[in-house]
Design a protein around this nucleic acid. Structure first.
Lengths: 219, 219, 219, 219
DNA sequence: CATGAATGAGGCTTCATTCAT
DNA sequence: TATGAATGAAGCCTCATTCAT
């Protein structure tokens, strides 16, 4: 975790640092991400990074935690009990979750990478934490919902978990594919992300959940 | 692509080379994969690799093509016209496809990595090739099937493509999660893959396709 | 040498500074000793060190002088003329000198290091100072004693100097070996040094000087 | 320990490498010794060092072993049983040992440094090996000699060991001090070491042992 | 007088690639 | 065709030192 010196930085400097660092780690394997590149982009001395963090791994862990905390703040704002059934809740959560992807695209990409793409030896111990947690959380939830009659007992919980999780997490890709959103390009050129396409996006997500609902709901 | 010298090797040597190289590239990012490690495992001189291939990228491209050709040979062995409807054909293809994963786990992992995980700068130009092709192929197919009445016109083709492709490719993960199949471990220990679990595996795939069918079929 | 600012510090602060700095330089080569570590332990700003001293070398020179002055104050408290012969005087000086080692272990270690172990390029010009001085002092002394009939003229003065100096300075090691005194450990754990072992220690030193006497005295 | 590649080098190259590396490690703390300097002096690429050795520590361990083996070959050539008493044997061994210092001055310095001066954290685990072994060896030997009547039972073995070892190992220093032998300078200027001074040197050693004998022999 | 962020040179290490044998 | 030593760029990291506040 960061050293005090990092928190002592002006908010502006700190934010700039985080953004550039996120950019590097969001688009590259841990091993391939380069501190050298980060400091070049930031125009600071290499030594400075090591005033803020113990080492490359420490920086990565911070960015991971930073992104997770933002994501969690999005996820936990909706409560199951405020919705009449699983699907309405799930849909609301999903659509709400899009805001995370839209407003924090780099965090979104980093977490996606950590969950699905990362394979560097150095970060292996920290890799499955949140994905496994998501799985455990989903499993408990689905079993609870089974008792409420949301899902058929006959469909194995593991299959449902896999199905829901896979689809949920495929959204980032969908965004990129369907709406030709090249995060990297837009961000580096300073263009606003999305914009008029948001409605189309929402429609796509609705369609996807509609399919999931058809797959899993009890007729 | 390989130089003549590579094809002049005895089949035994060539196969050994390919297996060890696949092992390296299947478990590591392009950038992280190490020629040094490969020659160490093979017990040959480093220079030899450059007698066979132009460079690291050339080797990677060969392994990619090698794996794709094997996969295609599995996929193309079943013909749509031999099946009464999309779902029976899809199910058959899928179950047949498992054999590719079982019989060529390293190729399977490499292609999975290329499709979903790889992000090294050097191979970016070659990354989307086969995934994009799969998407184009799926799109054409789904539109043809729409005309046959397999899918509702109202569901966007892109959504269906995304849905089918995502689920199809998530299988490798499912295998690992549900059946505790640690490719890496089993392979390095020379253990046979799967075995008595194949039936369970087939059941899981059937369940998954059953869900997909429920999601997409016309009632 | 220190800047004024250093002497303006409260005695408490100054002493604490010296102790921690001694700790660092007593256990490490000049090059390996780290200002960073010192300020960490002290909990002060790095810049402060440079308010007190010009640079690392300046600090080291101060600690060297500081230790030497203490040592000299121990050595010069006994006068040759108060003793009937060389050996009684030498023995007294030696035993008295032990107090320096016991009461100022860090200074003792620093001087030992400077005399025998240090080899950093940066401090080379200052290295032989006190050891050479000791040698010159010993040489003059021994030649004076030769005239008093303490030593045989036939034994080369250089040999005697070497012999006496080597043995004298080996004591720190003897302490550590024979009495299992781990300066480093005891100090860092705040334990009192020696204690009940002091008599044993005195006996060892007596034994050693007894040997030296047998070696050099005129029969 | 070195990799195969090191032993595959031509003897000339290998020897040159060892000499330059010895020069660096003989005159500097492990931490301060610099691979960069070594390759600069050698005029080779930095990477080459890592073709031969795993890392800096590996190189150091090799040089240590290399020097120890040479030293041992000098020491073990004389047998106790060929001498009428301890002192004649000791004197012979000592004088014979000088050849090691003269013929392999860098090895001699390295071992001296390892035994007495080195304090880098990284090599601590390997530091006391040979010195402790020497102590154990001496202790056994002295106890055996006590039974032969060489030493008085009344003098503690530890004291004798300390005495003998300290004096034995101080010789390198004596050489440098008394005969103004600046190894570093002579070697770097390609001058022959010693020469006409050897007789003087032998005399000094003889004198020193004469003192030791007087100190320890039974009258 | 104190602070502590910023600096940048220098160190170790890895790795794809070349080339003489 | 095979070899493997040689290369050097690039990466991570440490540390004494400076300087604006």
């Amino acid at each position: 975790m960061p050293k005090e010196t990092f928190y002592n930085l002006s908010e502006e400097k700190r934010n700039r640092f985080v953004q550039i660092a996120l950019e590097e780690f969001a688009y590259r394997d841990f091993q391939a991400a380069s501190i050298t590149q980060i400091v070049k982009k930031l125009g600071i001395a290499k030594g400075s990074v090591y005033q803020y963090f113990d080492d490359k791994l420490d920086l990565w862990l911070y960015l991971k935690k930073y992104s997770e905390e933002i994501k969690i703040s999005y996820i936990t704002s909706l409560k199951r009990e405020d919705y009449p059934n699983f699907w309405e809740y799930y849909r609301a959560m999903y659509l709400h979750g899009i805001n995370f992807d839209l407003e924090h695209p780099l965090c979104s990409l980093l977490l996606y990478r950590i969950g699905f793409k990362e394979s560097s030896e150095q970060v292996k111990p920290y890799l499955h934490t949140w994905k496994e947690e998501a799985k455990i959380f989903f499993r408990q939830w689905i079993e609870a919902e089974k008792k409420l009659g949301t899902f058929e007992e006959g469909i194995a919980t593991d299959i449902i978990v896999h199905f829901l999780l896979t689809m949920s997490l495929s959204i980032t890709e969908l965004l990129q594919d369907r709406y030709h959103i090249d995060f990297e390009k837009n961000i580096s050129e300073g263009k606003p992300l999305f914009g008029k396409n948001k409605e189309e996006l929402i429609k796509a997500v609705n369609d996807l959940i509609f399919l999931m609902e058809r797959a899993l709901k009890i007729n």
